[in-house]
């Protein structure tokens, strides 16, 4: 298939602006943005979930995030602030926030009330309850929040090439300009592959986390109980 020759052309992969570098750049955007998003959203989500206050903020934010066209937001920010790795990452981090925040707040608030009452009855302080009871129970949901945030960022980092350059979206943009469908397709295949691989990877982590959070639901062995 001639369409796929760009993707499998080794010379296109090497060097400055090569496919390999774009892939790494895309990954760097994604990891940096999700990490920054998590550092802000997880503590905030814990606070909202634990105190039960500010729930309206979470619902409003997650609804608005779904309706905002990421490309419009991106173009606006680039015109206002200019481009650069840091600025692009910051925009992507903002887009990653709602998913992580919603999931963390829901996970903490949804922790089994019996477990929380029991912890309180044992004399745990608020901080201890969060660390030893609510947080471990919330981890699977937090991971699923990180998962949707990662997908959102991988997709939007593609769009970022339109306004700021860099990342795998670059292949789509240059391919479109030079009417090289093979190059566009190479970009599309790699972006889809990156998204699916990251999704499966984080999904796997989520399964492990779920097993740790509720060891007895999957394995009824004494070892599972002891580890909890």
């Amino acid at each position: 298939m001639s369409y796929f020759s760009y993707l499998f052309d080794a010379s296109r992969w090497a060097g400055d602006g090569g496919t390999g570098q774009l892939l790494l750049q895309h990954l760097a955007y994604t990891v940096a943005a999700v990490l920054i998003g998590a550092v802000v959203a997880i503590p905030l989500g814990i606070l909202i979930g634990h105190t039960g206050r500010g729930g309206f903020l979470v619902i409003g934010l997650s609804n608005a995030a779904r309706a905002i066209p990421s490309i419009g937001f991106l173009v606006l920010v680039v015109l206002l602030l200019g481009t650069g790795f840091g600025k692009t990452v910051l925009v992507l981090a903002v887009l990653a926030l709602p998913a992580i925040l919603t999931a963390t707040a829901a996970g903490i608030a949804g922790a089994d009330p019996d477990a929380v009452y029991a912890a309180r009855a044992l004399g745990m302080t608020g901080g201890q309850i969060v660390r030893k009871v609510e947080w471990p129970l919330a981890v699977p949901l937090v991971v699923s929040g990180l998962r949707s945030a990662t997908l959102q960022v991988v997709a939007t980092a593609t769009v970022a090439a339109f306004a700021a350059g860099g990342g795998l979206g670059q292949l789509l943009i240059s391919g479109q300009r030079s009417r090289d469908y093979g190059q566009m397709l190479a970009g599309a295949v790699l972006i889809a592959a990156l998204a699916v691989v990251l999704d499966l990877l984080i999904g796997g982590v989520g399964l492990l986390a779920a097993r740790r959070a509720r060891p007895r639901s999957k394995t009824r062995t004494p070892a599972g109980v002891a580890r909890a």
Binding site: L151, A155, T158, G187, A188, A192, V196, D199
Partner: peptide
């Protein structure tokens, strides 16, 4: 779920 995870731009191009 995997299908849903494919970024839209990749889908538009493919």
């Amino acid at each position: 779920g995997v299908v849903y995870s494919i970024p839209s731009l990749a889908m538009f191009v493919a």
